[in-house]
Design a protein around this nucleic acid. Structure first.
Lengths: 134, 134, 134, 134
DNA sequence: GTGGTCTAGACCACG
DNA sequence: GTGGTCTAGACCACC
């Protein structure tokens, strides 16, 4: 459960935290019943203000991903994995869709867009070529 | 030179305007020497605050895409097409890269990412699909 | 749209603000499209920290009651009345249910509970006796 | 003297314990001179932190409901029943008053409030309903 | 120890 | 002018 954030990113720190935990739950790295680091602990680790972490945790609680155990901290809720998996896919798909929509609106040729996508896919995904899945 | 903007999009209105003009130049729809609408005119057409259009024009002027002809408004600069074409590709590639980077950081399986990308590619642009060349 | 809050209540200030606005929308006092006071303005009026008002507004935005018009402030959303009316009833009913559940768990006689409820109903509701609705 | 508490309720666990014991005394289920379970015993039974039970007992001792018999634990005081009966009514009435006050402040129509109250009264305690005396 | 709320004051992006 | 984010530091209730 250790990760770090990019303080200079345009995306707010608390959203970065939300996404990290959401993804961790979706991937199974964080299981239901697991306690997340305390607000102060995580804030110390990330070198951010505790309020920022608290806000992220509150968001996750409102989404039903975390539940607060009074006086004991917060833990991953029972049905968080289901929620998070669908959310994760929605988020990722949404970003991809946005990027492609902009590509189309730029009047780039479809083949050109496809080329850019493929280049970036291979770049980000090592040898993950289309027909050579391990 | 007619387009519209989405006031409820997360991307700032002035950036939407910048991108639209930049793309129009890159695609050849706006040629060097062409005068762009006045700030007031475009603001009226888009139903946005004139300050917003002004800021977009400022940005474009700083980038060298527009040049102001004193007393006459602004027009597309001579070497705008070259600038805009490379910019366009950079912008589009950047957005795609970001989206894919997030996909990877979400711990989605590479095949799953590939699947999402393909779905969205076909969705946004049927003819460009790999498996359905018209 | 003027109201005040009770700083010494056990219920958090930002929740009081949320409830006030939610109730105002439910009752029709605040109609869709109406702009709510700016964060700073309301904070000044209530003599609380702007952050506190901002938090209330964010909650309302997340609930879909308010929508943010960039640079212009926040206004009541189109379908807020529907949302708020059902929410209002849920909230009020929930509180009543809780109170009565506790009454039952106290092993007070049912007639006694009924008596208490009637006393308080008339107290809070003037001459609003059961069979004498004006 | 067996009861259980709801760890996820908004009302603090120690208050739940206090109320339960207070109600038990008021209803005659716990008589003066009766020994209450030890802190550890009750904590074990309720699966809560012993500190929480201790705090509840402290509160009850301060109210004069329990008295500590040194070395023997705590027992119900001689005049606890009288105290508890009036307290019980005050507590219950207070909660009802609060709920109704909120209902009024929500600008719900008086008839509507009356309807909600009646529905919940019958729900929680069928025989006590005004229109359906068994 | 835990989270929850509030204040004060700062900086930023947007219109 | 608007809201959004972040920091710093305080106090509280609960376990």
């Amino acid at each position: 459960m250790l990760f770090d954030i990019q303080p200079d990113s345009p995306v707010p720190i608390y959203e970065q935290i939300v996404a990290r935990i959401l993804f961790a739950v979706a991937s199974g790295a964080l299981e239901p019943g697991t306690r997340v680091p305390s607000v102060r602990e995580l804030a110390g680790h990330l070198v951010v203000n505790p309020n920022t972490v608290a806000r992220a945790y509150q968001d996750l609680e409102r989404q039903g991903v975390l539940v607060s155990r009074r006086g004991l901290g917060m833990e991953v809720s029972a049905d968080a994995p289901r929620t998070c998996r669908t959310q994760r896919q929605d988020i990722v798909r949404g970003r991809i869709r946005e990027a492609l929509r902009e590509a189309v609106s730029s009047a780039l040729a479809p083949e050109e867009i496809r080329r850019l996508v493929d280049e970036e896919l291979e770049r980000v995904n090592g040898r993950g070529g289309r027909h050579r899945e391990k």
